[in-house]
Nucleic acid binder design. Structure first.
Ligand SMILES: [Mn+2]
Ligand SMILES: [Mn+2]
Ligand SMILES: [Mn+2]
Ligand SMILES: [Mn+2]
Lengths: 218, 218
DNA sequence: CTCATGTATTAGGTTAGACTAATTTTGTAT
DNA sequence: ATACAAAATTAGTCTAACCTAATACATGAG
């Protein structure tokens, strides 16, 4: 059964929220899609009807197996297209998200596979996020920078916020995927951190920043 | 001003029909898009409102300059994506049209240019159709005069025989590059033609002559 | 000239997906 | 336990883009 652009966006939003919160509330979906709660509840009923989710106000929205399949397929296409835009068309990684938001909805049976092969079967998108394959999201060890203790370190594996302002900020800090970060100090009163990026001058960064950097620690 | 998917499809349809018919009728648009005439007239009024076309029942629909710009931009993207799908993703040329129908609506300021460069600035799509550039559809002398049927016409784009006798003969006929030729009649027994050159007196010309004149038709 | 047919137009209706403005339910702080 | 605020829900409205069915207009064959 073919899904609409809008249905696909809802399923994707529900998937992403479920990875960060233990309950996917109506409000969280509304905030994420910047839609009115009244619009959201209509769509949730439609998705429930189509057996793509379950929903009630206490449990929140939960993807069914087929709902998750759709969500992962969209995320896969989104991330593959982002790789294409950066690797082949030489876009900056900060520019590709809005274009991938459109491209992820292109529907064709063979397209994702052919694109994947053309790109050399990449494992990660330009933001360091893993590309789903075979209906599953690959998992790998990662930790928020905000969770590190003083003197611990790690390599930047991905960023949770892919907004242009945030990515521009990172660029200004000289921080990219693979940068090594060491925690020099942590301020108790607002959780801001003093860090060294690739061994350079200490920089102070807010908890909002450290919450959005995911590290490969091991 | 951003155009909807549907508006773009209408403008494209009007463009294509106008190249094959001397009037873009409501019915022709309805047939081409497989939409109901009642739906079509609504959209024509909307496009007229937005100054993308003019329309009245006797003249039919005519693209304004800005309407044509939009149409050519969509056709450009359609054909570039077809090249991508065939050249890079190794689709068969017969499979790519429905996918390009979706991809042509992806909106981003830089995308067409970047894609064009990535593909090596192709002049033709996989079906041999020219790819618009700089807001214009390239035209090529693509048909021998001898291939035209009665009542068809075209403009002289080039000549295959460049011998002095031939060119002198053309001069005597008052025929040069850009001259408009209309086929008035064709004689079965020796394939000679009776033609009007720039609307002048009918002239009879041999098949040897008509084989050596290349026309821009469309 | 007239009427049959094809083309254009109007009128009214549907669906998807959004909205605003109540209202109800739930959770939390006192 | 109360009362307030946040979250969920309902009711009603809107727009884009389609539809069907009825009607008007144009045209060409007899
Ligand atoms: Mn993205
Ligand atoms: Mn990404
Ligand atoms: Mn095509
Ligand atoms: Mn083509």
């Amino acid at each position: 059964m073919k899904k609409t652009y809008s249905e696909e966006n809802y399923l994707k939003a529900i998937y992403h929220i479920s990875k960060n919160e233990n309950k996917v509330s109506l409000k969280a979906i509304a905030d994420s899609l910047e839609n009115n709660p009244a619009s959201v509840i209509d769509m949730l009923r439609k998705l429930k009807e189509k057996q793509l989710i379950t929903y009630d106000k206490t449990q929140g929205a939960i993807l069914t197996a087929s709902g998750e399949t759709v969500a992962l397929d969209i995320i896969r296409k989104h991330r593959l297209w982002e790789v294409f835009l950066v690797e082949k068309l030489h876009y900056d990684w900060a520019e590709v998200h809005p274009i991938a938001e459109q491209l992820e909805h292109i529907h064709d049976d063979q397209l994702a596979k052919r694109l994947d092969d053309f790109l050399g079967n990449p494992a990660f998108d330009p933001h360091g996020d893993p590309i789903p394959a075979n209906g599953k999201m690959p998992v790998y060890a990662n930790k928020r920078l905000s969770e590190l203790e003083i003197s611990q370190s790690g390599k930047v594996g991905s960023v949770r916020d892919t907004s242009t302002p945030f990515l521009k900020y990172l660029k200004q800090l000289n921080l990219g995927l693979g940068s090594k970060i060491e925690v020099l100090d942590k301020l108790d009163f607002d959780q801001s951190m003093i860090i060294a990026i690739d061994g350079s001058e200490p920089r102070t960064v807010s908890s909002k920043m450290t919450d959005n950097i995911l590290l490969i620690t091991e």
